[in-house]
Design a protein around this nucleic acid. Structure first.
Lengths: 338, 338
DNA sequence: TGCAGTCGCTAAACCGTTCTAGTGCCTGCG
DNA sequence: CGCAGGCACTAGAACGGTTTAGCGACTGCA
């Protein structure tokens, strides 16, 4: 005989399937004595619920869906993403919810997967990352009526919950700090311009320039890769009046930039200060160590997971959670302008 | 009305549920004309299969299970793991199979999840990583009779498939290279001694010492963290007769070691050569760039995924796949002994 | 005593699909 | 003509749970 079913238990205890179901799910309808007997037999037969059978009846899938439209290869490169994943795991584990993960080619495929998983009852909710300017996915998920959490800027995003960090405030604090050190020519090696947070950071820096009376600020878009980060740095440092400080939108790019500075014999931080918009082991293990914006990406992931669990529990009330504004961790790569 | 079911389609077309099922699954039993009619209506009603209902009938879950027993926080730190995950995704995507991922506290919890997911029909197979010396998980999965692929050393592992890299050969090649450069005192900052691959590497280095007549080799176990990598390096470089070359079991530790060398004013590679047992962006973006063993972890993950898909397709024939022995990519952190 | 309400349980429907055992019709062959 | 066999399809039973309607026995209250 294969795995035991509730029918087997029912037969053995001498009650009906219904009674067994009630007993195992801790709901009223059976006496405490019978319940105990059923539980003992279930334990004895090593019974476990069959998730598919449960799902058929409309129960939870006990899984959250995460679909990412990026080349699979880049995921490993980006510490941000790996940390986020860790945090998500930590948060979901608390509710014994698994993560159903799939990497696809493009947004169209991503949307198709949303439709499929939602209609198949494979997941209880979705996590949406890499929010773009005018993102079609928000509308689709909204229409699907499935719980979802958007990781991105301040809402509203239809009826979806969202978790966001104050990118703008963070960028302003970096600008303040650099200005206080006497820097007036600040460059910004930004990420993908299609992403909303990239736009917010660029705008915040531009606003700071006006507010602080900086001589020059410039944002260079990249694709977040170390290669483009290095290339952008090379261009910036080759200028006649080179910037005295560079802000990188990721730690990988910052480290790549550090490498370029060394290669071009531009001492850090004496000639150019470097700030990373993201902190990880990377920033701590290079020399000089990097001044970085310590977003706790792990905590962010955990928060997203938690928000999703809450949204699943009460889909009628979407949440809007702002995470603590990240703080600048000053290390060796920044100094007063000489 | 909720989502359309095959019963709805059947009613609309005027045939039985069985006929619809045959038509949608491309199997004989309906005329081409009827099949076309059914497909058209299904398309029109935007029908999608309900995975739970399918699974109930014993069909595939179209998902692979990966359970990891590590603190969730460490996963983001280890580029190896992130790359592996990318590769797995790439391989599984080819079969439109999702990855069901869960991070747990310890091996006991991990085994519990194997039992649960297997009996719930939640996944079609498992991927087993971090193989340990006398690993209890192999026996459990074997007993469960569920398809699984072990990522680890050469088998046999019961009736499970396995994919493995030639760690021994790789370590031998590193030793050969360093010996050819004139190094005779070689240190090895190893990983967790409980892992099989750690043991294999330690043994291979010791064997090399005998074979090549090296003066001294020493392996220092760590937990793979940058902190312990740095600490081990500090100890090694503080010795009276310090090693002239250090091999690190991961790139994170190698970079941490590089930092320690800089901090202690031990020039790399002039005074000490550094080799990382793993290659990633990290090795390329630090200064000096790191000589590293280029395991293509992404390809490894893809291979594991592919092997799992094959094992699921034919569970009776476990596979034993050896991946190409990794090659040493020589960069700036190694030189002839001065 | 009569009636309503609760308790503890049973029987059966239901979820959406797959699979099996027919059933009627047509065809080909001896 | 009689019959085997294939085709196209139907009816209905699984699959393993959840859920609902209902039923008899008991209790409480008027």
């Amino acid at each position: 005989m294969g795995r035991p079913t509730i029918a087997d238990i029912a037969r053995r205890v001498g009650v009906s399937k219904g009674a067994v179901s009630f007993a195992l799910n801790g709901r009223p309808g059976v006496s405490e004595e019978t319940r105990a007997r059923i539980l003992r037999v279930a334990e004895e037969m090593n019974w476990r619920p069959h998730s598919a059978a449960r799902a058929l009846g409309g129960a939870r899938a006990e899984a959250a869906g995460l679909v990412i439209a990026r080349p699979a290869r880049t995921i490993g490169v980006e510490p941000f993403f790996a940390h986020l994943l860790s945090g998500l795991q930590a948060g979901l584990s608390a509710g014994a919810v698994a993560l159903h993960l799939l990497v696809v080619e493009d947004t169209a495929a991503e949307i198709e997967i949303y439709r499929r998983w939602a209609s198949e009852g494979r997941v209880d909710g979705f996590i949406l990352v890499d929010l773009q300017v005018r993102d079609p996915r928000v509308e689709v998920l909204d229409g699907l009526g499935v719980p979802a959490v958007v990781l991105g800027g301040p809402g509203p995003h239809g009826s979806l919950s969202c978790v966001w960090a104050d990118d703008r405030g963070a960028m302003l604090s970096i600008a303040d700090y650099l200005a206080a050190l006497g820097h007036t020519r600040i460059a910004h090696v930004a990420g993908l311009p299609a992403f909303r947070h990239t736009q917010r950071r660029i705008r915040a820096l531009r606003d700071s320039a006006r507010r602080l009376g900086l001589e020059e600020v410039v944002s260079v878009p990249t694709d977040f890769s170390d290669a483009q980060g290095a290339a952008a740095t090379r261009t910036l440092l080759s200028r006649g009046r080179r910037p005295t400080a560079i802000i990188y939108d990721s730690d990988v790019m910052a480290v790549a930039g550090l490498g370029v500075a060394a290669e071009m014999r531009v001492p850090v931080p004496e000639e150019v200060s470097i700030v990373a918009f993201d902190d990880s082991v990377l920033a701590r293990i290079v020399h000089p160590t990097l001044t970085a914006l310590s977003r706790d990406t792990f905590a962010l992931g955990r928060q997203v997971a938690q928000t999703l669990l809450e949204t699943i529990a009460d889909p009628a009330a979407p949440l809007n959670v702002k995470t603590p504004t990240p703080r600048l961790t000053v290390r060796e790569s920044t100094s007063a302008r000489s």
